[in-house]
Design a protein around this nucleic acid. Structure first.
Lengths: 209, 209
DNA sequence: TTTCACATCTGAGCGCTGTACAGATATCTT
DNA sequence: AAGATATCTGTACAGCGCTCAGATGTGAAA
């Protein structure tokens, strides 16, 4: 931020407290869940005083934003990997499954991610512009699978609809009421597959019912 | 606000503190938003000491559950009204719109409702059994609109898919990124309609794309 | 090298929170 | 009239987000 002797910003006392705090937060999040994620607990976990974080984050929500941001980047990466892994006609379904599985495997992180999104009332800033964002990946895949890229509004609406469905499923997949369906269908994965295909947006061309 | 000469269970000191607390909570929720909804603030609003609520609720989350429960009942009622109002072929869409509009008009309450649901990892207990629940209403409407009631699994999956989509849209409809779409389509209502119809679950029979 | 400016971290403290508990008070039962 | 019990208050405690004055380390200027 100040000098340019070496390549990196070269931190001062701690090493890189900002990084350490975000790491500590993610560790706590995984170990204790979102309710344990207090600023003081994070500082404790990182081995600094409760006031130290305020030199790197304006307030608690800014620290949470940093954690959430990393979550979005991880999600983007997993979606990209899924897209290259499955290039067949069910690519969209594969993306949907990947999205929901990410949420199911990182429930605490997913919650922090959407806490941020709800607070800001917006997806991450670059969601619609960054080619590598999950959102753009879904939209592009729709085009590759036959949607007309000239019908911009139509395409955008379809992407939003898919995103809404995936997010809804991500939040509800774990509900107790659906246990018997999972058993009947042979596991959670099959359940997710079935619900997604009922959304009619993730399977290329066989409508809804 | 204090006396009750009438039929009711005849409470002791306050009148019906439990009721008063839930009312106070809803008042606060609407006026100050969900972050202002502390147990102490609710007690203050109701004019009692911070410890008083503990004689009516095990802890804060039980009070929140009561608020959320009322929210679900209000939602159920509005869905029922919508169903009788619009009995045409777009009944399902009307239900979807009603759901999302409820969430958009009562954002704080909707959040408390889903806080409960996320905590319990389940929809309200009677969601799948109570005929008057929004969930059953959607499922029944699907049958009335042509779905095969014998294909139970299929029907259940379609209902879940629709619910997921509606919930996703309820949470995302206010996002800043979608402002231009709302303008282009001529208002938020048209936007909701468009996204819902892209889900392919709310319009009876014209697939997705 | 000494000095200085400043980034970083600590410790104490404020007002808030959820919750516990002992004691006061009102109501119901006998 | 007396006792049991439900209800409410006052006080207290630990934890929270956040602020601020002061200590401490660091890089740049003299």
């Amino acid at each position: 931020m100040s000098q340019t002797k070496t390549v990196e910003p070269r931190p001062y006392h701690h090493g890189d407290l900002r990084r350490a705090l975000v790491d500590a937060a993610r560790r706590l999040l995984e170990a204790e869940g979102p309710s344990a994620l207090s600023l003081r607990a994070v500082a404790r976990e990182a081995g600094v005083s409760p006031a130290a974080p305020y030199h790197h984050f304006k307030d608690k929500s800014e620290l949470m934003d940093a954690v959430a941001q990393e979550g979005w980047e991880t999600l983007n990466a997993q979606m990209a990997e899924a897209k290259t892994r499955d290039a067949g006609p069910h690519q969209l379904t594969a993306l949907g499954i990947t999205y929901v599985c990410f949420a199911r495997e990182n429930p605490a992180l997913y919650r922090v991610m959407y806490d941020m999104v709800r607070e800001k009332e917006a997806l991450p800033e670059d969601a619609q512009s960054n080619k590598d964002s999950a959102y753009c990946m879904v939209r592009d895949t729709m085009v590759e699978r036959g949607a007309d890229p000239a019908a911009e509004t139509h395409l955008e609406l379809a992407t939003i609809a898919a995103w809404c469905g995936a997010h809804g499923l991500a939040e509800m997949a774990g509900f107790k009421q659906f246990e018997h369906l999972k058993e009947e269908l042979g596991g959670e994965r099959a359940f997710l597959d079935a619900v997604l295909s009922h959304m009619g947006l993730f399977a290329p061309k066989h409508g809804a019912c």
